[in-house]
């Protein structure tokens, strides 16, 4: 991709200041997002994926402090903008489908009216009533809802329908980027599948860029072109989704993929990851994964591995990535 990236996250470092000390939530994370690209950030709770999502919109928690790094949207550093200018970008350039957003609808207003509010805030010149209604109808059709539902109240929607309406709202101001943070986590599999297919279709049709954030590596496999794997505040591997799934190079990525059960393929023995993620008040020295890493050497506990480019668009932060087996374990369960 030779076009300049839409979004660049450049050596971002973010801490949460707490009574017990600073929590190192995002540590030196860099990635880019191009137009039309679907990027997935995957990792366990506390790995920093939601912190990054919130930072992109500058909606981070009050005790968050950006230590260094930049987030550039079309070359403009969002972290340096005054709040009122940031507000212009929010929703209009970058929209977000929050985790559990389907429960964020105000129960006493019609769903269409709540979307209208977003349109009124961001559309200049303001849309007329007829234009707004027309637009909301088109948005509803796009996400697979009956346009007549716009006149209904949130309680008349099922969970899946409410989440579709959230997506319609996120699309309402033609953003160039959508951040979808666990967009289907609370939903049943069949509804989850419907919504993911819908998002994929919309993204393709509108040429939008999407950042999916999920703990579910199977969901990320289905909807993204590029995957970033996070561990304890660090981005440890970034590359084309197909490539990373076929040949994960970071030991954590390798173990994560080896420990994901699937309904397809041979029934294989899953390799448990020993131990638990570290406390980020006091992260391990060197590589943050070294205490749990079966490939760790002495160097790993002393020196932090840099992100190294190992193939076109495939980067890994590990001293010993060459030691990681070529593909994930296929051994059948005894």
């Amino acid at each position: 991709m030779s076009a300049p990236p839409l979004l660049e996250v450049d050596h971002l470092v973010m801490n949460y200041v707490t009574e017990k000390g600073d929590v190192s939530a995002v540590e030196d994370v860099s990635f880019t997002l191009h137009q039309g690209e679907a990027l997935g950030l995957v990792g366990e709770s506390g790995c920093g994926k939601t912190s990054i999502a919130m930072s992109l919109l500058r909606l981070q928690a009050e005790n968050a402090v950006f230590k260094s790094g930049e987030i550039r949207l079309n070359g403009e550093n969002l972290l340096a903008l005054p709040e009122d200018e940031m507000r212009r970008h929010r929703w209009k350039d970058i929209a977000m489908v929050f985790q559990g957003a389907m429960n964020a609808w105000n129960p006493v207003y019609r769903v269409g009216d709540q979307i209208r509010e977003a349109l009124d805030l961001h559309f200049r010149p303001r849309l007329s009533d007829a234009e707004a209604t027309e637009r909301i109808s088109r948005l509803f059709e796009m996400v697979g809802l009956n346009p007549a539902m716009a006149n209904r109240y949130p309680h008349e929607f099922s969970g899946g329908m409410r989440q579709r309406a959230v997506i319609a709202m996120a699309l309402s101001c033609d953003p160039s980027i959508i951040i979808a943070d666990e967009p289907t986590t609370a939903l049943d599999v069949i509804v989850q599948d419907q919504i993911l297919q819908e998002l994929k279709k919309i993204q393709r049709e509108l040429g939008m860029a999407i950042i999916y954030i999920s703990h579910d590596i199977a969901v990320i496999a289905e909807v993204t072109d590029t995957i970033g794997i996070m561990y304890a505040g660090k981005l440890v591997e970034l590359g084309p989704t197909v490539e990373v799934f076929a040949r994960p190079k970071h030991p954590y990525a390798y173990l994560l993929l080896s420990s994901t059960p699937s309904v397809t393929g041979p029934r294989r023995k899953l390799a448990p990851l020993e131990g638990e993620p570290p406390n980020l008040l006091n992260p391990p020295t060197g590589c943050r994964f070294h205490p749990r890493c079966p490939f760790a050497t002495e160097r790993c506990s002393i020196e932090e591995p840099p992100m190294e480019t190992i193939a076109d668009g495939h980067r890994v932060a590990c001293w010993n990535w060459r030691e990681v087996p070529v593909s994930i374990a296929q051994e059948a369960r005894p």
């Binding site: 099922s158 969970g159 899946g160 049943d188 599999v189 069949i190 509804v191 989850q192 599948d193 419907q194 993911l196 579910d216 590596i217 199977a218 969901v219 496999a221 289905e222 993204t224 989704t241 197909v242 799934f245 076929a246 993929l257 994901t260 699937s262 309904v263 397809t264 393929g265």
Partner: peptide, 22 residues
């Protein structure tokens, strides 16, 4: 249900889910 389950393999082509609604 089976065709809706996400599969941790980006090269896997899922059969479409044939039922509607929740």
């Amino acid at each position: 249900l089976l065709s809706a389950v996400p599969v941790p393999d980006p090269t896997y082509r899922k059969p479409p889910v044939e039922i509607k609604g929740g």
